[in-house]
């Protein structure tokens, strides 16, 4: 594995909902920049394989963050292993229902639980670490769909809008303790699984992607996440950054 500049030497990054393409890309890049990387997801295989590949300083965990107690438990185990948690990355969520007909009341609740409540519990988990150390960075992965709306993924787009409200809440509450919190809003990702089935992906592509010059890659999004979590990114707080090659211009 290529080694970067060591920007995150001595830092420990916790990535939750890590098994998505952006989470995996972020894990690789943080690790290459010398960070300890913990990937948590109940969707096992990908993060286990990546942790084995990265070897030293990488760890895959599978706590279910739907459980409120899992947040503190996860953070405690990370602190036991690496000594601290310095950065929390809350990766993108999933879409289950798609259009309005497909979204039952149960599906709606499941999506909100998976995409919002897990993040809420992860935040509660890192609170003690960040507060006592007087420092910390949170980067959340929302979506361009939150800002533009997306008819084919109403559940997902709504939950990603919720992520932005949660992001600003963290910024409001924790800035005074030296914690910054921002979000990235990626456009459609060129590769990998966004939790979309192929019908939805092509629908999204037809309606929106053709307007932009190209799709963003998971690695390109991860690089912005690294920047926001780095020393250089600290003045950026409470903001959502579109990472989309300008796609948002077409539906401002």
């Amino acid at each position: 594995m290529k080694t970067g500049s060591g920007r995150f030497s001595g830092k420990t990054v916790l990535i939750v909902n890590a098994a998505g393409s952006i989470g995996l890309a972020a894990a690789r890049l943080f690790h290459a920049e010398s960070a300890n990387v913990v990937m948590n997801d109940t969707r096992g295989e990908a993060i286990v394989q990546l942790a084995e590949l990265l070897g030293d300083r990488a760890w895959a965990t599978n706590l279910d963050l739907l459980d409120a107690e899992a947040g503190p438990r996860l953070v405690n185990s990370v602190v036991d292993r690496f000594g601290s948690v310095d950065i929390l990355v809350c990766n993108e969520g999933s879409s289950y229902g798609g259009n309005m007909e497909g979204i039952t009341a149960e599906v709606w609740s499941q999506v909100m639980e998976r995409n919002l409540t897990t993040v809420f519990h992860a935040l509660q988990g890192v609170y003690g670490q960040f507060r006592s150390r007087g420092r910390g960075s949170v980067v959340m992965v929302s979506s361009l769909a939150a800002r533009t709306g997306c008819a084919g993924m109403i559940d997902y787009a709504s939950s990603m809008g919720g992520v932005l409200g949660l992001m600003k809440s963290v910024s409001r509450e924790w800035s005074r303790w030296g914690v910054t919190c921002s979000a990235v809003c990626p456009g459609p990702i060129a590769e990998g699984d966004q939790g979309l089935n192929s019908d939805l992906r092509s629908q999204y592509a037809q309606t929106q992607v053709e307007l932009a010059s190209r799709n963003v890659t998971a690695e390109e999004v991860a690089k912005v996440i690294l920047f926001l979590a780095s020393e250089d990114g600290r003045p950026i707080n409470g903001q959502a950054i579109n990472v989309d090659y300008g796609l948002h211009i077409y539906s401002f």
């Binding site: 259009n99 309005m100 919002l116 809420f120 769909a145 939150a146 800002r147 533009t148 709306g149 997306c150 008819a151 993924m153 109403i154 787009a157 709504s158 939950s159 990603m160 809008g161 919720g162 992520v163 932005l164 409200g165 949660l166 600003k168 809440s169």
Partner: peptide, 17 residues
């Protein structure tokens, strides 16, 4: 804030539909 920011994205999505 989470609920109310989600309502904005929900509105846009439904409006498109």
């Amino acid at each position: 804030a989470t609920s109310k920011s989600a309502v904005i994205s929900f509105t846009k999505s439904v409006a498109i539909d």
